[in-house]
Write a protein that binds this DNA or RNA. Structure first.
Length: 310
DNA sequence: AACCAGGCGCATG
DNA sequence: CATGCGCATGGT
């Protein structure tokens, strides 16, 4: 994790593990949606982030056996924090080999080990962001959900300008805590969702909830119990946020319609599975439930990676 | 033109 | 415990 060059404090590298495919990850980030939280270039992602509390804009691209983070705006004072962020974003600390073994043991799922080889569970390191995003995404179609997130972020997030483009940090809880429901309602959030978001924002801003506090809980069940004690965070939302932010490997977003659609597609499942039914399907993937979910979601995005290989 | 989206809480039988 | 309903808007 040394700086790449002594005179270029703006470049940091993060070693990548085996079974890592940056293009697969970029492809997932790009899918078909208009996500305000990053910009995808052919071989890089540009991402605003808070690293050790300080706003930065980083461009992440592939180097020799590593990812290179180029700091475009802001200053990284805590190099370890930046490297941790990149590892978290691309889930670089997981050994995928056992997961691929399990996939190959199921004839209907085996194709994913090859087609999506090296795809990592893309994270949302900021727990507040992950929770807001999953609340926003409840029950509405994804393109509308991305639209709502865009409005929230453009209205309340901190701007970073770079080369004629504007990037935004996700708003901090303190900011959202002061927003009125009416202001969100004006941006076409439902009254309910507005209340949920503001309530969660307050809980974060008082320190009542935090990633650290949640991480300290002994079991995923305890984390889910804690999160679902807030109105607007149900089982689906809690599992989604824990999978994306805390990388809790055993999380299954029960009730997720996308998960059902994927299982319908690859396993011919005829109807929405009950909880027990889903548990049965996932039972062989103990410890890889979140990854299996993520890979199943991947099957829903049709076009395949434009092959760069001849 | 209905119907349903990466759900949830609340109200009923 | 199960089932039904409204929510905001947009895609199909």
């Amino acid at each position: 994790m040394a700086t790449l060059q002594a005179h270029s404090p703006d470049l940091f590298q993060t070693p990548t593990p085996p079974l890592f495919n940056f293009q697969e990850c970029l492809w997932f980030l790009d899918r078909n949606y208009d996500d305000i939280m990053h910009r995808i270039l052919p071989d890089a992602v540009i991402k605003p982030a808070r690293i050790a509390g300080k706003p930065v804009l980083v461009k992440i691209y592939e180097g020799e056996g590593c990812l290179i983070s180029e700091v475009l705006r802001g200053e990284v004072t805590d190099e370890a924090a930046l490297v941790r962020y990149v590892r978290d974003l691309f889930d670089l600390d997981t050994d995928l080999a056992p997961f691929y073994e399990l996939l190959r043991s199921d004839p209907e799922l085996a194709f994913m080990a090859d087609e999506y080889r090296g795809l990592r569970l893309i994270g949302i390191p900021d727990l507040f962001e992950a929770l807001c995003w999953s609340i926003i995404g409840q029950q509405i179609n994804l393109s509308f959900a991305y639209k709502l997130k865009r409005r929230l972020v453009e209205t309340f997030g901190e701007r970073i300008d770079w080369q004629d483009q504007t990037y935004y940090l996700f708003p901090e809880p303190e900011q959202v805590a002061l927003v009125s429901p009416a202001a969100l309602r004006a941006h076409q959030f439902s009254e309910r969702k507005a209340e949920y978001l503001i309530t969660i924002a307050r809980a974060f801003s008082t320190g009542e909830v935090s990633k650290e506090l949640l991480t300290a809980l002994p079991t995923p069940e305890a984390m889910i119990r804690q999160l679902t004690s807030y109105k607007g965070i149900g089982e689906w939302t809690a599992n989604y946020a824990l999978m994306k932010s805390l990388k809790v490997a055993t999380c299954i977003p029960y009730g997720d319609v996308g998960l059902y659609n994927a299982l319908h597609k690859v396993k011919g499942l005829a109807r929405r599975p009950e909880r027990a039914e889903l548990d049965a399907i996932f039972s062989k993937f103990c410890g890889w439930e979140a990854y299996l979910t993520f890979y199943l979601w991947r099957t829903l995005s049709k076009p395949d990676l434009p092959s760069t290989a001849p």
